[in-house]
Design a binder for these strands. Structure first.
Length: 490
RNA sequence: CGGGAUAUGGCGUAGUCCGGUUAGCGCGCCUGCUUUGGGAGCAGGAGAUCGCAAGUUCGAAUCUUGCUAUCCCGACCA
């Protein structure tokens, strides 16, 4: 049990903030709104990065890198795009500092003002499409399937570690296609990749769907998304994939000659997930004892803690543990054997538990006598004592069990917190309890905005698997053909 | 950009109303001994220009003024 750790039920957001810091994932930095991702937190992101990167490559994508700075004029080329991002851009205006004539350190050199100001990228569509213009002449140049891993800056008013920071890490895929169909298929394919990753690596169940026009990415014709439910019942957008139509191609005059020797505008997509996924991971699985990690993303999958009364006994345990470590490593399992003497076993138990290590093994004098070892799994906190013989096989199996159990637990929770609501009165009542509300909606932005104003709930998405059924809009009573998901969100 | 609050060793805080010894405590850190099956105990030790600047005073963490920074609540958002 971790001391002085606030419970989820008492104050969910404080629980989250404290967890991030105490589990050594990240900390606040000297720069407002920006965080330092600490080694343990970064190790988790790195695992996400590696798995996603492989999935992108398996679907034919290649990595590239585009500049951090974007000429101010580029941003205004696409009208909706600039409107969406203008309010949160960091702007570089000068390129030199000088000694303050009054002796107060350094100041901006007024003589070094940039001819054209530079925007620190909030996203890279504009710089990338200005580049693609030079890459694309013929249908033979298509498709272009590029991804980049980068940092972006969005000057946010209110920030929370991982969920919303002024600077964050992400990947952004930017693809160019010859036909509308190809581009739409690409956007949907990448959404499937994201859903696959969320569910099979993060063990986070997600709803695939399309955003309402109101929630659409600035400059897109359609925004597809995966939505996850956190333990407080709020929704979290975990990834988005956009069908951009020909908007950027037109803004940057990217045309190609088709087989009929006619000029056509290129069709585009973009898609991204960010370090926000860390927030989703934390808020889906963790409990009042700290972080809970799915084995596939845990930097340390097994922690081994020796319990002993003397140096001699420690050496005995070291010897006993060595083959276990080797057997686990041979199975590709990441092990940490912690035989530091400055911490007591109890301290280590709490520590690894707090950091979400999926499995802990403990070996003490009793085990030495019996040839046994204590196995504790993080998801259920169940402890059993079993023979050391065959322990690696057992642990390997446990990894799969824990991974599956975490997903099932989250899926069950989501199912229990998802319900159909058919009247406005009921809606106002139910939205207070959190969770996803499946409701009919008349399809208008006006209704959506009204509902948001009155209840703070937004349409998270129109689910792909929504059943066609006739109904009446929860708010206006007008006809509707399918239910959409309403929820309060991060 | 509106409304509210706070600023004291690495972290959390007491003291501020009502000015007066060496700025107290907990956690953490260092040393030593004893410990080790769920965050060990004892002893000793290091660490603070009390956010910054000016003012009032014999004397300021404490009172006054100005500045700065941060946090919370709104508008904005992956």
């Amino acid at each position: 049990m971790a001391k002085d750790f606030v419970k989820r039920s008492e104050n969910y957001s404080e629980w989250y903030n404290e967890l991030v810091v105490r589990a050594d994932l990240a900390e606040n930095s000297a720069v407002r709104g920006c965080m330092v991702i600490k080694p343990y937190g970064y190790a988790i992101w790195e695992k996400m990065h590696d798995a996603l990167d492989q999935m992108f490559k398996d679907t034919g994508h290649v990595n590239a890198y585009f500049p951090l700075f974007i000429p101010k004029s580029f941003l205004s080329r696409e009208a909706e795009h600039v409107e969406g991002f203008a309010k949160e851009c960091a702007v570089v205006t000068h390129h030199r500092l000088m000694n303050d004539p009054n002796g107060n350190g350094v100041v901006v050199d007024p003589a070094a003002r940039l001819e054209e100001e530079l925007i620190v990228r909030p996203t890279s569509e504009t710089i990338i499409w200005s580049t693609y213009k030079n890459w694309i002449k013929s249908y033979r140049d298509l498709p272009i399937l590029c991804n980049q891993w980068a940092n972006v800056v969005r000057w946010e008013m209110r920030t929370r570690m991982f969920l919303r920071t002024a600077e964050f890490l992400w990947q952004e895929g930017h693809t160019a296609h010859a036909t509308r169909e190809d581009a739409e298929a690409e956007a949907k394919k990448m959404l499937d990749v994201y859903a696959d990753f969320a569910e099979n690596w993060m063990a986070v169940p997600v709803v695939k769907g399309v955003k309402s026009p109101n929630e659409r990415f600035a400059g897109a014709l359609d925004t597809y998304c995966i939505e996850a439910m956190m333990q407080d019942g709020k929704a979290l957008q975990a990834g988005t994939s956009h069908f951009l139509g020909q908007n950027f191609a037109k803004a940057f005059e990217v045309q190609f000659l088709n087989k009929e020797n006619k000029l056509e505008y290129v069709w585009a997509t973009s898609w991204g997930v960010s370090t926000r996924l860390m927030g989703a991971l934390i808020m889906t699985h963790s409990d009042d004892n700290g972080l809970v990690l799915p084995p596939k993303l845990a930097p340390i999958q097994v922690a081994i803690v020796p319990i002993c009364k003397s140096d001699e006994q420690m050496r005995e345990i070291d010897t006993k543990v060595e083959p276990i470590i080797n057997a686990l490593k041979a199975k590709g399992i990441t092990v940490k054997y912690d035989n530091r003497t400055e911490y007591k076993p109890g301290w280590k138990f709490t520590e690894y538990e707090f950091k979400g290590v999926p499995v802990r093994l403990a070996i003490g004098p009793r085990d030495l006598e019996n040839g046994t070892c204590e196995v504790c799994r993080r998801d259920t906190l169940d402890k059993i004592t079993m023979p050391i013989e065959g322990i690696a096989d057992h642990v390997e199996q446990l990894m799969e069990e824990i991974q599956a159990n975490l997903f099932k637990r989250a899926a069950d929770f989501r199912a229990a917190q998802t319900r159909k609501v058919d009247t406005w009165e009921q809606f106002k009542e139910e939205i207070e309890k959190g969770g996803f509300l499946l409701c009919h909606w008349d399809g208008t932005t006006e209704t959506e905005e009204r509902i948001k104003e009155e209840t703070k709930a937004t349409i998270r998405c129109i689910p792909n698997d929504a059943i066609e059924e006739e109904g009446a809009c929860i708010y206006s009573g007008k006809p509707s053909h399918r239910r959409v998901i309403f929820a309060r969100s991060y």
